[in-house]
Computed example of a mutant assay.
Amino acid sequence: MENTKGMGRAQFLAAAASAALAGALLPAGPARAAGSGRGLRHRGVVYTVGAGETPGTAFSTARMREDIRAIRDDLHADAVEVTGDGVERLTATAAEAAERGLHVWLQPTLGDVPARDVLEHLAETGRFAERLRRHGASVDLSVGCEFWLFVPGIVPGDTAVERIRNLLAGTVDPVRMQRRLDRFTARAAQTGRSVFQGRLSYAAAQDDEVDWGLFDIVGIDYYSYFRRRSDYTAELTRYLRWGKPLAITEFGTCAYEGAPETAGMGWDIVDQDKDPAEIKGDLVRSERTQAAYLVDLVDVFSAMGLYAAMAFEFVTPDAPHRPGDPRHDLDLASYAITKTIKDRPDDPASDWHWEPKEAFHALARRYATEGRCRENPWKAQLSGARTPPRK
């Protein structure tokens, strides 16, 4: 993004939107080979751009711009995964991140609508990603996330929650599910290729079977827990067998004791049948637990030389933190590295702000170190050699 530094926002957006399709293509740049062991190429965070569940948490362009600034300047990330639905929200956020010199991992995730709508949403978002790329932005396009969860017709159920319940109940035919998943993934890859000439990927669940020959980068949402770092390395190595760069498209946990051991189900602690919703059980809040897990995984990813790692996630506005009220502290169910504080906790239209959790500060320190080592690869190798795996 060197040629956009100093450009005004209006100039950048105008240039990106009007880039001549007949012009010379800017090369996407080689994605470093998997497992090169020279630190993370991209260190980032997931930024979700949904519409919001209440008037007070509706998407705000002004708030988004400040968040992207904080991701770059305070978190010391060099990448952001822009995900969610709504082409306007996705493209505005991607443009802001690109203007600030961040690497953009653009991942539309429209869900619970017909498959044709999902593909149209992908195509429109992908066209914008291509305009950014032609203008010189560093951008990868992911065609989506865990299609079996978000796209109706692969697993029985009208909503993602219903589909999860059917899977857990064991009422799904795995052969038929895989056949449907393969067909839709191939259609999505074809759609992505038709509009985007850069690197293409997909965010799969850990146990998904994916034809990675369709993509340039292997993308995995990773939520394992092991006591030994060497076990993470052993498990992740299987995703390198395709000889392609590996991106960790999500990793993280919640801020309570025992959350990392839930293997990605840490969010399932809220009783939605209560009004207001409340936390089930007597959980002990522990921001330190979340922070330690995230940093341990970044150490693993860096030592393996992975292409990218995106912590899930930056902020969850609809899961506010209520200090002193653990039964209604919905932030306990959030994977965010910040906590949402509402001015008026019981008012859906209340304004709010976020405050960093311990995980934010820990990641910021780790990402800053990673950034310095990226500037000096030899230093990175020496640093890695001096830090033995923790038992």
Rank of each mutant, 00 (worst) to 15 (best):
E146Q: 03
G39D: 02
G252S: 10
H353V: 10
P156C: 03
V143P: 00
G384M: 12
N3L: 13
D282I: 00
G219P: 01
V104C: 02
K379M: 15
D296G: 03
G35M: 08
A62M: 05
G44V: 09
P377Y: 05
D112K: 00
V82L: 06
A58F: 01
V49A: 05
G86I: 04
P245Y: 13
A115N: 03
S36W: 06
A303P: 03
V315T: 14
P345S: 03
S36L: 09
Y293W: 10
F184W: 13
D331L: 01
P377T: 13
P260M: 06
D275S: 10
A20L: 10
G52D: 11
D78V: 09
A309L: 06
G126W: 00
L149D: 14
L13C: 09
I269D: 12
I71A: 00
K391C: 07
F196S: 02
A380S: 15
H321W: 10
R199D: 04
L167H: 13
A70R: 15
H42W: 14
P30H: 09
D112A: 09
R65N: 04
D318M: 09
A333H: 02
R238K: 12
T48F: 11
I341T: 09
V218F: 09
V82D: 04
L25V: 07
L297H: 14
A51N: 01
M64H: 07
P30N: 10
R372L: 15
W105I: 03
T289I: 06
A169V: 08
G153D: 13
V118Y: 01
T57H: 10
K280E: 11
V118L: 03
R41G: 01
L297S: 02
G153C: 10
L13T: 06
R390N: 15
F360N: 04
A303M: 05
E287Y: 11
T109E: 07
D216G: 10
A186I: 02
H76Q: 15
A14G: 12
D78R: 00
A205D: 04
G264W: 09
A33Y: 08
R241H: 15
H76E: 07
P114A: 05
G56H: 03
G153I: 11
K244Q: 15
A292W: 11
R116W: 08
G101I: 07
H361G: 01
A97K: 05
F301R: 04
P245G: 04
V175F: 13
A79V: 05
G219L: 14
E257I: 15
L119R: 08
V118H: 12
A15K: 14
V104P: 00
S224C: 07
A15E: 13
G170T: 14
Y293S: 01
R165E: 10
L119A: 14
V155L: 07
E53H: 06
G50R: 08
T61F: 09
Q197F: 03
R179S: 15
G44R: 01
L110H: 02
F150S: 02
A97W: 10
C254E: 04
T387A: 14
R285F: 12
G29L: 06
T338H: 04
A160R: 11
L110K: 04
H135R: 11
M304N: 03
D182F: 11
G39Q: 08
G324I: 05
A362L: 08
G305C: 06
G243H: 09
A309Q: 00
F312D: 03
P152W: 14
P326K: 09
